[in-house]
């Protein structure tokens, strides 16, 4: 029983990170028809912005995180949109997909060359220590990850559904033509989506790196699992992607423990293929009216 709970909690803590990455992924798709194959690298990068701040510039951690957020907004938000998505989107979805594959390679190799090929320890915002719960052990770190990610998701949902700006973004996502007619500055809304995604990946990066270390190729696995999470949950709905993140985190842990560790990744991929073929809009997504 303790073990089952342990696996469940560990799956949820990791799943929270997947949920953040998957939510950003879904947002980009909804508002900008952008499939970001570099989303994993997007999560990897801000941790190195932080490390560059603390190690190279000697900044205190808080200031370095702020710097990382600003850099992420500029590079992963603004620059990504202007330099990659804007010129390529008119050509269709596929060129953007291919370009983001190249962006992923670019980010990964740049970090390796200009920072380090080795895994780096990353400062934690939370004190060490553990909490025992019905036979399972949770670190304060895990609890912080769950709490912060949960709050961020909640805040994002409230922002998107309760504020004027958020509703305008939602409207842009659901029907850009109508939104434009209604006088919503859709172009600016699209830009906000890219910035929101940059903020989400920065948060995910800062939460996950103290636990799993910062390394240039972390994005490979993380990105793959975040896609799977988004598609399984349904990536035309933010809440679908988020639920998918948690589900995939839990399935991964139980699969590795009770089914097969050799085929650990395979279990998730089979889930992915099954969902795409049987329920292409995802377990909690809505069917798309647009042709995909």
């Amino acid at each position: 029983m303790g073990n089952v709970l342990q696996l469940l909690l560990a799956g949820l803590a990791t799943g929270a990170i997947y949920a953040l990455a998957a939510a950003g992924f879904a947002l980009l798709w909804q508002t900008a028809r952008t499939i970001n194959f570099a989303q994993g690298e997007f999560v990897m990068l801000p941790a190195f912005f932080v490390l560059a701040g603390t190690e190279w510039l000697g900044l205190p951690l808080g200031l370095a995180i702020l710097l990382a957020l600003v850099l992420a907004l500029l590079v992963l938000g603004l620059l990504f949109k202007r330099a990659i998505v804007d010129p390529l989107l008119p050509q269709g979805v596929l060129p953007v997909v291919i370009a983001t594959i190249a962006v992923g390679i670019l980010l990964k190799e740049s970090v390796k060359e200009f920072y380090s090929a080795e895994a780096q320890p990353f400062p934690s915002l939370v004190a060490g220590g553990t909490l025992h719960l019905a036979g399972a052990v949770l670190s304060l770190q895990d609890i912080a990850v769950l709490l912060v990610a949960g709050l961020a998701i909640l805040a994002m949902q409230l922002f998107l559904t309760r504020t004027r700006l958020g509703r305008m973004m939602q409207a842009t996502a659901q029907n850009p033509e109508v939104a434009l007619v209604l006088g919503i500055p859709t172009r600016r809304m699209v830009l906000y989506t890219f910035l929101l995604n940059a903020a989400l990946v920065t948060l995910a990066s800062i939460l996950i790196s103290p636990v799993y270390l910062a390394k240039f190729d972390n994005g490979e696995t993380l990105g793959l699992i975040a896609f799977i999470a988004a598609i399984v949950g349904g990536f035309n709905q933010i809440r679908g992607a988020i639920a998918g993140g948690f589900l995939v985190g839990v399935v991964d842990n139980f699969g590795a423990a009770y089914l097969s560790s050799d085929y650990r990744t395979g279990i998730l991929l089979l889930l992915l293929i099954a969902v795409i073929l049987l329920r292409p809009h995802g377990l909690w997504g809505r069917a798309e009216e647009r042709t995909v």
């Binding site: 499939i35 269709g92 979805v93 596929l94 997909v97 793959l224 896609f227 799977i228 598609i231 991929l269 089979l270 992915l272 293929i273 795409i276 073929l277 292409p280 042709t291 995909v292």
Partner: peptide
């Protein structure tokens, strides 16, 4: 059944 990016994901999984 599926096109474009969905197909990219299926084949990637395969």
């Amino acid at each position: 059944r599926v096109q474009h990016h969905y197909l990219a994901f299926v084949t990637l999984g395969a």
